[in-house]
């Protein structure tokens, strides 16, 4: 297996004794587009700031390109692009100056792409940053990040404030990066339906804990919501599946989402609990999966995904 671009072990950040990021074991393999998913306050931005070296961990280890981000050399920093959830370019700086500045910093700055993106995003070189609307500022920041030629691009809520068309353009550009050899993207977003086609991996975090990570296609294959017209006890399901969520809306009704469904496992469950054979199963899209994971009946602890080793190619 190739070495992950990002690898954290037990990564923890406490503020005033409270763990905002709690023992995160995160892996981002090279060439992947990884969606970093969680509700507000889940710990996504704090994690990203530790990955970029802006924040020091309270405990645990973080490696980006094999080294501690706080000790990255200038060469390594050239390979990393970062879009934070805030936009802090000097207000008086024009879009043209932003491009010049980046061209000076980044040896692999792609001016042709920058010109194309300015056209697509309808930005003028003479526009001053402070005069732009929120959505336009966002576009400048994204144009900047996409053109730096980074091998690793980390983006925190990049599409917030963008309209549907701009988001579509942006996501297609992220795919272009995915199609070029060996470049890696880590992106957090609330707009799960946008991410769904673009990412190949997803990482779900909740209350600072990593709940699930894996290849999205693989997860969609294994994740299944089962609805039983019967009382199927949790421990019976536990014997056969890795459970994401479990609830009994009525005494004779059980709804449970599992991560590793298969016909064989289900047959074993039905042999174990005969009432379980009366079932309706459905596959979940990214948003439904997210709701089951972070909702009230969710796991609150890591769920082991099936074939995880096979996924992390």
């Amino acid at each position: 297996m190739t070495e992950p671009v990002i690898q954290t072990t037990g990564l923890t950040k406490r503020f005033d004794g409270r763990a905002v990021v709690d023992g995160l074991d995160l892996q981002v393999p090279p060439g992947s587009v990884t969606g970093f998913l969680g509700v507000n306050g889940a710990g996504k931005s704090t994690t990203m700031r530790m990955l970029t070296g802006h924040l020091s961990p309270s405990a645990g280890d973080v490696r980006v390109f094999g080294a501690d981000p706080r000790e990255h050399s200038a060469e390594t920093l050239q390979r990393i692009g970062y879009v934070s959830d805030t936009m802090n370019l000097p207000g008086r700086m024009s879009v043209g100056r932003v491009m010049e500045m980046n061209a000076g910093f980044f040896t692999r700055w792609d001016q042709t792409l920058a010109d194309t993106l300015c056209r697509e995003f309808e930005l003028n070189a003479s526009d001053r940053f402070q005069k732009l609307s929120f959505g336009q500022k966002r576009r400048v920041v994204l144009m900047q990040a996409l053109c730096q030629g980074a091998d690793l691009l980390m983006m925190d809520e990049p599409a917030g404030g963008l309209d549907v068309l701009a988001r579509r353009l942006f996501m297609d550009r992220v795919l272009d990066i995915a199609c070029s050899e060996g470049r890696t993207v880590l992106v957090s977003s609330h707009l799960l339906s946008d991410l769904e086609r673009v990412v190949d991996r997803v990482v779900f975090i909740h209350k600072g804990l990593l709940l699930l990570q894996g290849n999205l296609e693989e997860l969609k294959t294994g994740v299944r919501r089962m609805q039983f017209e019967a009382d199927v006890p949790r421990d019976a399901l536990d014997r056969h599946f890795n459970i994401i969520s479990y609830r009994q809306p009525k005494p004779d009704r059980t709804v449970s989402t599992v991560v590793d469904f298969s016909e064989e496992r289900f047959d074993q469950l039905a042999a174990d609990v005969s009432a379980a054979s009366n079932v309706r199963t459905e596959q979940l899209n990214l948003e439904d999966m997210f709701v089951e994971l972070v909702g009230a009946d969710g796991p609150l602890t890591a769920v082991t995904s099936p074939g995880r080793e096979a996924v992390e190619v």
Binding site: G31, S32, V33, M171, L175, D176, C179, R197, D200, N215
Partner: peptide, 17 residues
């Protein structure tokens, strides 16, 4: 793989799969 990824607007890893 890249052509199909771009045409369908999906991740190239998915096309490999």
């Amino acid at each position: 793989i890249r052509e199909l990824a771009k045409e369908l607007r999906i991740n190239p890893t998915t096309v490999t799969r």
